[in-house]
């Protein structure tokens, strides 16, 4: 198990229930009530919920006797994955920052990108293959200023999460989303 997650669980059992979860952040809330641990929140995927419940139950006997996960739910999903795709673009001061942002977003959104690339002046020729023609000039202006651009193509159902993370949680200078398109594999 990821050391950060083990550390988080240790902190929770020690009483630090305010600490945000390393992956799910503020979406998961924990409360310790005497000998029981309550997990609440809304997660995007059932597998994430199962994993959290498993991790919590494996800690029974280590300061807790009971785990209450009744209010830890998976968000009802009305959208169909695999129908549409969308490309999210974010500009950073340099390639290293863009790479950190990519790693952060992939980990926290729990999304597998359909395609992703970091473009700067060293590989700007591939830009035309990554984004619609109408966006090439906007991005090239950023690259000409010395910035590195993260281009990440995801399922449309994950695009809100990815854009939100890029825009609000990373040090990007600029973000943009191309319009949703029919998924390429269909």
């Amino acid at each position: 198990m990821d050391e950060r997650i083990t550390g988080w669980w240790d902190a929770v059992l020690a009483g630090e229930t305010d600490e945000p979860h390393p992956i799910h952040g503020e979406r998961v809330k924990v409360r310790l009530k005497r000998d029981s641990l309550e997990l609440t929140g809304i997660l995007d995927h059932a597998k994430d919920r199962d994993q959290l419940v498993r991790q919590a139950r494996s800690r029974i006997g280590k300061g807790i006797r009971k785990v209450d996960v009744e209010r830890l739910v998976v968000a009802p999903r009305l959208e169909r994955p695999g129908v549409l795709e969308q490309t999210i673009i974010a500009a950073y001061s340099d390639r290293a920052t863009a790479e950190l942002a990519r790693n952060f977003v992939v980990e926290h959104s729990r999304v597998t990108p359909k395609h992703e690339a970091i473009v700067d002046h060293t590989n700007s020729k591939q830009l035309a293959n990554l984004v619609p023609d109408e966006y090439v000039d906007d991005i090239r202006k950023r690259i000409d200023r010395g910035e590195a651009v993260l281009v990440i193509r995801v399922d449309e159902t994950a695009a809100f999460t990815v854009r939100g993370l890029l825009e609000e949680e990373t040090r990007c200078h600029w973000t943009m989303a191309t319009p949703p398109e029919v998924a390429a594999r269909v």
């Binding site: 169909r80 994955p81 695999g82 129908v83 549409l84 449309e156 319009p179 949703p180 398109e181 029919v182 998924a183 594999r185 269909v186």
Partner: peptide
Amino acid sequence: RSRRVAAGQSANEAA
């Protein structure tokens, strides 16, 4: 589900 999207459909129609 994804196969419901017919070839040549616009994103608007598919969605």
